[in-house]
Design a binder for these strands. Structure first.
Lengths: 126, 126, 126, 126
DNA sequence: GTGGTCTAGACCACG
DNA sequence: GTGGTCTAGACCACC
């Protein structure tokens, strides 16, 4: 799996990693029992510090998504798929809600929002 | 004007203040020449640290939206309305783009996004 | 609060900190709303790296024991006391259970265990 | 001999093996001259990595408990029994001391400790 | 080889 | 002043 990290979007790198690993599991790109790329490997491929990857993996362990296999790296837990599928939409929804709440405050109209959304979705086809 | 501050949405409090003052100006709730509430007053009504309000006001001065009037506090500049109306949709668009970019990465479908959006917009009628 | 850190007992320093902070809360040495010593302060007084303290505090946050107050440090949550009182005995019990499970395997007798325990408890009076 | 390995109690697997072999010798389950199960056999029966068993056996050789016999595997040395009987209680005592030291720090009372201990010992009758 | 821990130090965001 | 993030690098434990 290849990460897409942005150093400028305000979201901490370790959290971007957490989210993208969850997405990969939710999508089936990583399946139960399979091993996630090693800390060093992932760090190299994403050009970030190994400690940053380690922190993301640690967070995923406390959430029950990853499980350490001594000397063999980190494996995706059996519950991971369910956890990640459940939280995937939720993660998007939370951010979306926050934006739309502000939009309402700004008295932008619902139709203006719909136009903005459709304009972005139109790019997805490519 | 009454601020609605969320301490948990990840956006710095001072920036939430900046944005909401801009919205108020764009909407005509604050008009040219009118004075913005004093730092102390605003801080008290929104239950935030006065330093935080001061920082927001400082940023608004830098952008040319507010202007200090000796002994009278801060006034809305003549060009403020234009500045704020112009940036209002843009501010929303930026955040929306960021969310949808992540949504694409997560392989959520466009229709799922539309449903989430409509679900939120439905709340606006109240 | 003053930590007692052992670098040689096998328990990670950050976890020793986590446990001792919980003990302090369970005992009432730290009460709801009160602020825990700052990362830098605690690090200095315990002669450990600030990052190590920060990690312990971060873990305590994810457990809901501490809550960040922007710019003001970390406060003990209202639920903290309950959480910590509940887990205090539990933390001891877990380790005790592990030792006694091994003792049973080694076929040490129950009376030998009782003697060992009493010998240690006798030291507590001082 | 059948090992009981816990992957979650924090004690390295190889050390659990070392200790349990010592217990078996102290109890007479393994006697002088007798051969310990082969690395492969032990690894299979305990479902651990053969390297891990090999390391445990290596440590036991270093301590003079096991002795390699050309082409025949590892035999229990004549002095093993004495060594193991002597260290058995000591091994337990060390861990017990560590737990009780923390218990004292947590201000759990001596009586609470006694109750916990008795509760565990009560299970031994089975 | 793997992950885990700890140290050190820089930089930033926030109040 | 506070905590948060990230980098860098060393060392260890385990398999």
């Amino acid at each position: 799996m290849q990460l897409r990290i942005s150093a400028t979007n305000g979201i901490p790198i370790y959290e971007q990693i957490v989210r993208q690993v969850k997405f990969a599991i939710a999508n089936g790109a990583l399946t139960t029992g399979e091993h996630v790329p090693s800390v060093r490997e992932m760090a190299a491929s994403a050009a970030v510090n190994p400690n940053t990857v380690a922190r993301a993996y640690r967070d995923l362990q406390t959430e029950g998504v990853l499980l350490p296999v001594r000397g063999m790296g980190l494996a995706v837990t059996p519950e991971a798929r369910k956890l990640c599928r459940g939280s995937r939409l939720e993660m998007i929804r939370e951010r979306l809600q926050s934006v739309l709440a502000e939009a309402q405050l700004s008295e932008v109209t619902a139709d203006e929002i719909r136009q903005l959304v459709e304009k972005e979705l139109a790019k997805w086809k490519g």
